[in-house]
Design a protein around this nucleic acid. Structure first.
Lengths: 208, 208
DNA sequence: GTCTATAAAAGGATAGAC
DNA sequence: GTCTATCCTTTTATAGAC
C-alpha cells in the first residue's frame, strides 16, 4: 500500500511545493518568484523547503519535469500523434504559471553556463524527436505529404508553440492551439502540393 | 554641425552604454547582467551610468527601442515587405546579445505589473500591424493568396520568429531566417490552394 | 557629468539544534 | 523533517561632493 511512512509524506510535500511554485510564478513571474514565498505558501520556512531541493533552479527544473511526465500520460497516449501536442498547448491556457515559467526559465537557461542549460537542450532534443515521429505517422496515413521533412516540421511546430505562448502571456485573447492547428493544416496542404509537383516532375522525366 | 557641446557627448555616451549592455547580456544572459558590469565596461561607475537611465528596465527598454529604429531604417525601407522582417531575423544571428535580451526580457515583461509590460504590448501591436500590411502587399502582387488573413499570418510569423530565436540560442546551428522563409512559402502555397478551392466552390454554386 | 560613500534590501545558501 | 540563526554576496538606488 502506498502512503506508508515518511517516504510517501515526503513525496506529497514535494508535489505540494511544485504546485505552490507554479502559483507564485503565475502571480509574480519567474524572475520575481522567491524560494521564500513558495515556502511560506506551503507552511514551511525557506530552510525547510531547501531540504527537498538543492537550489532554486533545481526546484523549477522539477516543476517542468513533473509537468512533462503528467502531460505525456494525459495527452499523448494512444495514437493521437501531433494532436496530443496540440492538446497540451490547449490545456496550458489553464496553467498560466507554467507558461510563464517555461517562457522565462527556458530563455534564461538558453545561455550556456546556466545550471539548467543541459536540461533544456535535452528536452528540446527529446521533444523534437517525439514530434518528428508523430509527423511520420501523419505522413503514413496521408495527412501530411511525403515531401515534408519530419524534423523540420517538428522544429517549426515547437518554435511556433513557444512563440505563441509568449504572445498569449501578453494577451490572453490569443488562441494558441487554434493558431497551431491552423499552421499544421497549412503545412499539410503545402506538402501535398509539393508531392503533386514532384509526381508531375517524375512523370515528365519518364517521358524522355 | 552635429557633435557640438555636451549634448552630443551625452548621446554618444548613451549609445556606448546601450552597446555595452548587449555585450554583457551576450556573455552572462539578461538575468545576470548587472548595471555595474555595464558601467565598468564603458569606464563608468554604477552611479555614473544611472545618470543616463532611471532604472535597469529602462536601460534595456532603450536597447530594444534603439535596435528597432536602426533595424527599421536598415532593413525595412523601400518595398521589401515581409522580406525586410526576414532580413532582420537573419541579421540577428550576428547579435546574440540582442536575441538573448529579447527572449528573456520579453518573457519577463509578459507579466502584468512588470515596468516594461506596456512597452512590449505596444511593440507587439505595432509589429503585428506592420507585418499585416506587408502580407497585404504580398497578396496584392499574388505571392500570398487572397484567402489568407493578414493579421493571422503576421501573428504566426512573429510567434515562429520568436520561438526560433530561443531555439537558436540553445543551438546556433539552427537557420532562423531559413526556417522562417520556409514557413512563409508554405503559407503562400496553402493560401493559393484555398483560393483555388474557393473559386471552384463559387463556380459550382453558379451552376445551380 | 562623474565619483565616493552608503543605504537598503534581499535573496540564496549553510550550520547546527530540536 | 523542520526550524532558528546567521552569513555571504549581490544589486539597485540615492545623497551629496567635486
Amino acid at each position: 500500500m502506498a502512503g506508508r511512512g515518511p517516504y510517501a509524506k515526503g513525496l506529497a510535500r514535494r508535489a505540494e511545493i511544485l504546485s505552490a511554485a507554479l502559483d507564485v510564478v503565475a502571480e509574480n513571474g519567474y524572475s520575481r518568484s522567491y524560494v521564500n514565498d513558495i515556502a511560506e505558501r506551503v507552511g514551511l520556512t525557506h530552510t525547510g523547503l531547501m531540504h527537498y531541493f538543492a537550489s532554486r533552479e533545481e526546484l523549477y527544473e522539477e516543476v517542468i519535469r513533473a509537468r512533462d511526465v503528467s502531460d505525456r500520460t494525459a495527452y499523448t497516449t494512444g495514437a493521437r500523434g501531433v494532436e496530443g501536442y496540440f492538446a497540451v498547448i490547449e490545456h496550458n491556457r489553464h496553467v498560466p504559471g507554467l507558461v510563464q515559467l517555461y517562457a522565462e526559465f527556458s530563455a534564461d537557461a538558453a545561455h550556456p553556463g546556466h545550471p539548467s542549460h543541459a536540461f533544456f537542450v535535452e528536452r528540446y532534443a527529446y521533444l523534437r524527436e517525439a514530434l518528428a515521429r508523430d509527423v511520420e505517422l501523419a505522413q503514413a496515413d496521408g495527412a501530411m505529404g511525403a515531401t515534408a521533412d519530419p524534423t523540420e516540421v517538428a522544429e517549426l511546430l515547437i518554435a511556433t508553440a513557444d512563440g505563441l505562448q509568449v504572445q498569449w502571456l501578453h494577451d490572453h485573447r490569443i488562441d494558441m492551439a487554434g493558431r497551431l492547428r491552423a499552421l499544421w493544416r497549412a503545412l499539410c496542404l503545402a506538402s501535398h502540393v509539393r508531392d503533386a509537383a514532384r509526381e508531375d516532375a517524375r512523370k515528365g522525366a519518364g517521358d524522355d
